[in-house]
C-alpha cells in the first residue's frame, strides 16, 4: 500500500540546513496498523507530513497504492489527499463554525458528492463513531474525545486508502485516549490501513507494528502483539 525508498528531507534554517530524515525505507501493506514512535525531533511528524503529501521530500521515492507521488502541483496534491488519505490531528482541527455533520461532510463536498448523499453518508459515519445525536452540535459544544471521534469520522468519510493520525491521543486523558484507540482498532479491523504517530508506549502497543524513529533513521521495526483498547474502556 505504502512504499518509500531512501527518503531524505532537510529544512533550511537560515544558512544552516537541518537534515531531518536521513534515508527512510518503509513499507506498509494494506490493512496494517502501524505506530510510528520516536522522541520529539526524531522526524516522525515530518515523515507523516510527507506521507500525507502536505510536505515534499528532497529525494527518494514514494509510492501510494501503486501511484508514484512526485512533483505534485498543489491542485493534484489536493486531489490525491482527498482521494487517498484521511487525516486525524492532535488538535482535532475541526472547523469551529460548522456543525459536526458539516465537518464530516466536508471531504465529500470537495469530491463533488451531491448534498443529500453527502449528508446521509456523513451521518452514517457519525453513527459509526457513536455521535449521531451530536450531529447538529458545533465543535465547541463537544468534549475532546468527541471532537477526536468527529475528526476520525471526517477522515473516514471520504473512504481513503490510508488513515494518517498525528498524535491522535496527544490532547486527551487516558480513558478518552483508549476510547479513541478502540475506535481506531475497530476501523482497522474493517481492513483499513492506518498509520499512527505517537510517543506513548501504551498507545503504540495497541497497534500491530511499531516503527522506531531516531535522528531521522528507522532504528527498529517490529511486529507486536496488539493490546485491545476495549478492555480499558
Amino acid at each position: 500500500m505504502i512504499e518509500i525508498n531512501d527518503l531524505h528531507k532537510s529544512y533550511k534554517m537560515g544558512s544552516n540546513s537541518l537534515h531531518v530524515l536521513k534515508g527512510i525505507n518503509f513499507k506498509a501493506e494494506a490493512g496494517e496498523l502501524v505506530a510510528i514512535m520516536g522522541s520529539s525531533g526524531s522526524g516522525k511528524s515530518t515523515l507523516l507530513n510527507i506521507l500525507g503529501m502536505l510536505d515534499g521530500a528532497n529525494s527518494g521515492e514514494y509510492t501510494l497504492d501503486g501511484v508514484p507521488i512526485k512533483d505534485l502541483s498543489e491542485t493534484k496534491a489536493a486531489q490525491y489527499r482527498n482521494k487517498f488519505l484521511g487525516f486525524v490531528f492532535q488538535s482535532f482541527n475541526l472547523i469551529n463554525y460548522k456543525s459536526a455533520l458539516e465537518n464530516v461532510a466536508l471531504p465529500l463536498y470537495y469530491q463533488g458528492v451531491p448534498r443529500k448523499e453527502r449528508q446521509e453518508k456523513a451521518l452514517k459515519y457519525l453513527e459509526r463513531v457513536g455521535l449521531k445525536e451530536w450531529a447538529t452540535h458545533l465543535p465547541s459544544e463537544l468534549s475532546g474525545g468527541q471532537k477526536q471521534r468527529v475528526a476520525i469520522a471526517r477522515a473516514m468519510a471520504a473512504e481513503p486508502k490510508v488513515l494518517l493520525a498525528d498524535e491522535p491521543t496527544g490532547a486527551l486523558d487516558s480513558t478518552t485516549s483508549y476510547e479513541v484507540m478502540d475506535l481506531i482498532q475497530k476501523i482497522n479491523d474493517d481492513g483499513n490501513t492506518i498509520l499512527v504517530v505517537t510517543h506513548e508506549e501504551d498507545i503504540a502497543h495497541m497497534c500491530k507494528r511499531i516503527v522506531h524513529l531516531k535522528d531521522g533513521v528507522i532504528v527498529e521495526d517490529k511486529k507486536v502483539k496488539q493490546v485491545r483498547a476495549e478492555q480499558y474502556v
Partner: peptide
C-alpha cells in the same frame, strides 16, 4: 489560515 490549512488537507482545491 488554519481553517484553510485544514480544508486543503482534506483535499479542497486551491482554486476553490
Amino acid at each position: 489560515t488554519k481553517e484553510i490549512g485544514i480544508r486543503r488537507a482534506l483535499g479542497e482545491q486551491p482554486w476553490s
